[in-house]
């Protein structure tokens, strides 16, 4: 998710950068535990912040191992760690996202390969969640970010706008769907955590070490 100059230039993300990305994403989750939990209390069961924290604590415990691996294996390993530690809905979904990315990506992907792998990962999330765009979930951030990546849009503003855009939606998937119309007017917690991850990743990749 860097900003490669052309579709066909392969990106090399070295071990130090991999480590910084992992740490930045984890830190973003740790810094927003309360916010995510509050969002989930409003329309879910109030654990999303804690779930993400628990998952990324496990990831951080093994950061050396993860960062040392080539990009695909690193992504798969982190995805598997999330699956095995988060629980809830977000664990299998983020885990599936990352594991699919890991399966689809070469070690040094081109931008086109990244776009395609990200698209496949989103499809895998949909399949796992029996869900689709517009249902007030993390997909409503992942989808627009995927489009922005493909079309060269700004990932950060896209992610924020997309998270904000979940507010007026009525939830069709996730615990919030039990609320029906009462889910309207609240941001989806998974959309927010997705946006936070995007910020953390772009921030590292755009900042020199």
């Amino acid at each position: 998710m860097a900003d490669p100059t052309s579709d066909s230039t392969a990106m090399a993300i070295d071990e130090a950068t991999r480590r910084r990305v992992i740490a930045a994403v984890a830190q973003a989750m740790f810094d927003h535990v309360e916010e995510l939990t509050a969002l989930d209390q409003a329309i879910g069961d109030g654990d999303h912040g804690l779930n993400m924290k628990r998952g990324f604590e496990a990831v951080m415990a093994d950061i050396d191992t993860h960062a040392a691996k080539p990009l695909p294996e690193a992504l798969s390993g982190i995805g598997m760690a999330l699956v095995m530690k988060v629980g809830g809905a977000s664990g299998p979904l983020y885990g599936t996202l990352l594991m699919t990315l890991g399966k689809q990506l070469p070690a040094e992907p081109t931008r086109a390969e990244l776009v395609s792998a990200f698209g496949a990962a989103i499809e895998a999330v949909k399949a796992r969640g029996k869900s689709d765009f517009g249902q007030k979930t993390m997909l409503d951030v992942l989808g627009p970010v995927h489009a922005a990546l493909r079309d060269g849009g700004d990932l950060d503003t896209t992610a924020d706008k997309a998270a904000d855009a979940t507010v007026p939606l009525k939830a069709i998937r996730g615990r919030a769907s039990f609320l029906g119309d009462r889910s309207i007017g609240h941001m989806d917690p998974g959309a927010r955590s997705s946006a936070l991850m995007i910020h953390a990743i772009t921030n590292v990749l755009e900042t020199p070490a």
Binding site: D45, D47, V83, G87, G88, G91
Partner: peptide, 11 residues
């Protein structure tokens, strides 16, 4: 047993 109100994990 999962965490409180959180599904257990596949492992």
């Amino acid at each position: 047993p999962g965490q409180v109100f959180t599904s257990p994990t596949p492992d």
